[in-house]
């Protein structure tokens, strides 16, 4: 009858013995449930030290992790979404936008910034999954296009950090055409010989995968991210079978040849620095042979 026994002692703690903990001081890993100090979690790039779970974080966190001393200049922040089709499903798109903007404090699902990463200049466009699932609408497409233009103009490499369910249905064909638009811009970047890095994080699917996310000179993935064209649910329904374990994971993509390498977020910045210096044929100052 052991399964009736209380295994977790925590439940038996009496109320007066419970410690009052200020909100946000602790972080509980959504996967292994271990709690660590929120500040430690942050210092570890929002990766669980026990199970290596990479927490879903947004542009603010990535900019803080990547840019030297967290210093960067945000680009094209004045570009804001509209409702070109007066789209309405169970809710109208306008109020969906307003709600998401209020909740997230963001204007849309992507922010672009430029600064130094490990001493090397880089333009970074990063998605925010908490804004309508990181979906790609006109704003995302336009900001990525301009980030690429910025990179071409200033001869700075460009990186896009993807974390998205795909195209934004509420902008329908406008969203679809962002795939063509961003890919065309990448063709120009390639012509200018400026590096483009695509960082694939959990999750990256749909129209994002079928355009700029797969077009990196370097496709880099965070560990155990879901990356695919069709969503797992759609595939399961189509083939009528359960999907094999690890299907559409970063490791699966690496195995099938679509990702250059996987890097944990904790090593991302140094890896990028290394990569950018190799591309620029420029050794690290501290390592320069005397």
């Amino acid at each position: 009858m052991s399964w009736f026994k209380r295994v977790k002692e925590g439940i038996t703690t009496s109320t007066e013995d419970k410690k009052a903990v200020p909100d946000g001081l602790w972080h509980k890993c959504p996967r292994c449930k271990k709690a660590i100090l929120a500040s430690d979690h942050q210092a570890n790039c929002y990766v669980c030290p026990s199970c290596k779970y990479h927490d879903k974080v947004g542009s603010a966190e990535y900019f803080e992790i990547l840019f030297d001393d967290g210093i960067c200049e945000e680009l094209f922040a004045g570009i804001k979404p509209t409702d070109p089709l007066t789209f309405s499903d169970t809710k109208d798109y306008k109020s969906r936008l307003a709600e998401s903007q209020k909740k997230s404090g963001l204007t849309d699902a992507l922010r672009a910034a430029t600064g130094n990463v490990d001493g090397m200049p880089l333009v970074v466009a990063c998605m925010d999954f908490n804004f309508i699932g990181g979906s790609m609408g006109s704003v995302m497409g336009e900001k990525i296009a301009r980030a690429i233009d910025y990179g071409r103009e200033h001869k700075i490499p460009v990186m896009v950090i993807s974390k998205s369910g795909g195209a934004r249905m509420m902008e329908a064909a406008f969203s679809l055409m962002q795939m063509a638009k961003t890919s065309a811009k990448l063709a120009l970047l390639a012509k200018d010989g400026i590096p483009y890095i695509s960082l694939l994080t959990d999750p990256t699917t749909g129209g994002v995968t079928a355009s700029f996310a797969m077009l990196g000179d370097f496709n880099i993935a965070e560990p155990e991210a879901l990356i695919g064209f069709a969503g797992p649910r759609v595939i399961r329904e189509t083939i009528g079978k359960d999907l094999p374990k690890g299907f559409q994971s970063s490791e699966f993509l690496l195995e099938h040849g679509f990702v250059d390498f996987i890097t944990p977020r904790t090593e991302l910045k140094s890896k990028l620095g290394q990569l950018l210096r190799l591309l620029a044929n420029k050794p690290k100052e501290s390592e320069q042979a005397s």
Partner: peptide, 26 residues
Amino acid sequence: GASPGLEAEERGQGEAIAKNLLEMSV
């Protein structure tokens, strides 16, 4: 739509489409 399936994903459906978008534009 592009085929959603195991083999399509294994062989890089996303990459194949993306590559066409880029190449067709030039």
